[in-house]
C-alpha cells in the first residue's frame, strides 16, 4: 500500500504534461493532419511558460504559473499555424513540416534565450507550481493519500480536459465534423463542412494543448528552459495518441501508463519487486508497447483514414 502511495502520485505528476499534449495530438490526427511537431509545440510552450514566469513573477504574484501556462497555450497555438498553413493550405508533406516545427521551435527558443539571458539556459523560475492537498478529499483513508495529497492542480486540469475533449469530439456536432474531415474529407465537404477550416482549428488546438503540456512540464518538473528541457516528451505523447487509439480517454490512459513507466524508472530502486529489473526495460517499455500495439498484438490500432493526406478540392 505504501508503495502505491508513493508511485501513483509520481505517475500522475509525470503524466500530466503528456496528457495535455496527447490530447492535442488526438485533435490534430482526428482531423487528418499528422502532427510529428508535438515535440516542438511543447518546446515552444516550455520556453514561453518559463520566460513569462521569469519576467512577470512580480506582477502576477501567486497567479504567475497559471497566467504563464495560459500565455504559453496562446503562443503555441499561434505558432502551430505555421504547421497548419504548410500542411493544409500548401499541401506540404505533414511529417516533414512537423520535423521542421521541431527544429524551428528549438532554434527560436535557444536563440531568444541567448539573446535575452546571455547564455544557453534560463534561471530557475521563482514561481513554479507547488503541490497542494485537496481539502476534505485528502483526509479519506487509503484513497486520499494516493489521489488527493500533495498533488499538482494541473494534474486534475489534465484529467478534466481529457473528459472535456472526449465530450467535444464524440458528443457535439463540431466533434462529428472534425472526425468526418479526418475520415473522409470529400464526403464531409459534400455535406457542407469546411474541410480546411476544421483542419486549421484542429491543428491550432493541438498547438494550444501542446503548449499547455510543455509549459506544465517546465513549471512542474524542469523549472527552467534549456535545449534539454523537453527531450522526447512530445514523441512520447504521440505514442500515447496511438497507444490510446486516437481516443481522448484512451490517450489519457496511455499517458498515465507511460507516466507510470517513467516514474517507476525513477523510484524502482526503492520498490522491492522492481529493484532487480534493469532500468532500461522501464525506459523503453512505452515505446516497445506502442510498437506491439500497432503490430496488432495488443488490440488493433487503426489511424483515421485520411490521416496525412492533404485535401485538394475537386479530386477523388
Amino acid at each position: 500500500m505504501e508503495i502505491l502511495q508513493s508511485i501513483i502520485p509520481t505517475a500522475l505528476f509525470f503524466s500530466a504534461p503528456l496528457i495535455f499534449t496527447a490530447l492535442g495530438g488526438v485533435f490534430s490526427e482526428r482531423s487528418g493532419v499528422i502532427n510529428i511537431g508535438l515535440e516542438g509545440l511543447m518546446i515552444m510552450g516550455a520556453f514561453v511558460g518559463i520566460v513569462f514566469n521569469l519576467t512577470f513573477a512580480d506582477v502576477f504574484g501567486d497567479w504567475t504559473p497559471w497566467v504563464s501556462i495560459f500565455v504559453a497555450m496562446i503562443v503555441s497555438g499561434i505558432f502551430s499555424i505555421i504547421h497548419a498553413v504548410a500542411s493544409v493550405s500548401l499541401r506540404a508533406n505533414q511529417v516533414v513540416s512537423g520535423v521542421a516545427i521541431n527544429m524551428l521551435a528549438l532554434g527560436i527558443g535557444i536563440f531568444l534565450t541567448k539573446e535575452w539571458y546571455g547564455k544557453g539556459q534560463t534561471e530557475m523560475v521563482s514561481k513554479p507550481f507547488y503541490t497542494t492537498d485537496v481539502p476534505f478529499l485528502s483526509d479519506i483513508p487509503v484513497i486520499g493519500p494516493m489521489f488527493f495529497q500533495s498533488m499538482y492542480m494541473t494534474t486534475y486540469l489534465a484529467i478534466f480536459l481529457a473528459i472535456a475533449s472526449w465530450f467535444v469530439l464524440f458528443k457535439t456536432p463540431f466533434g462529428l465534423r472534425l472526425r468526418a474531415v479526418g475520415e473522409h474529407p470529400m464526403a464531409a465537404d459534400t455535406n457542407g463542412v469546411n474541410v480546411y477550416k476544421m483542419r486549421y482549428i484542429a491543428v491550432i488546438l493541438s498547438g494550444a494543448l501542446g503548449g499547455l503540456g510543455g509549459s506544465v512540464y517546465a513549471l512542474t518538473i524542469a523549472s527552467n528552459f534549456s535545449h534539454a528541457t523537453i527531450a522526447g516528451q512530445g514523441f512520447m505523447s504521440l505514442a500515447a495518441v496511438i497507444f490510446g487509439k486516437w481516443h481522448p480517454l484512451g490517450a489519457m490512459g496511455a499517458a498515465i501508463f507511460f507516466g507510470l513507466a517513467q516514474s517507476l524508472s525513477v523510484v524502482s530502486s526503492s520498490v522491492p519487486l522492481l529493484q532487480d529489473v534493469p532500468q532500461v526495460f522501464l525506459l523503453v517499455a512505452p515505446y516497445v508497447l506502442t510498437i506491439l500495439a500497432l503490430a496488432g498484438l495488443i488490440g488493433r490500432a487503426d489511424a483515421p483514414k485520411a490521416n496525412g493526406i492533404p485535401y485538394i478540392k475537386g479530386t477523388r
Binding site: I82, A92, V96, V99, A100, I101, L104, G107, F111
Partner: peptide
C-alpha cells in the same frame, strides 16, 4: 542557433 532557424525555414 540562428542557423538552426534558417535550416528549419529552408525545410518549410
Amino acid at each position: 542557433e540562428l542557423v538552426d532557424i534558417i535550416i528549419a525555414l529552408i525545410i518549410f
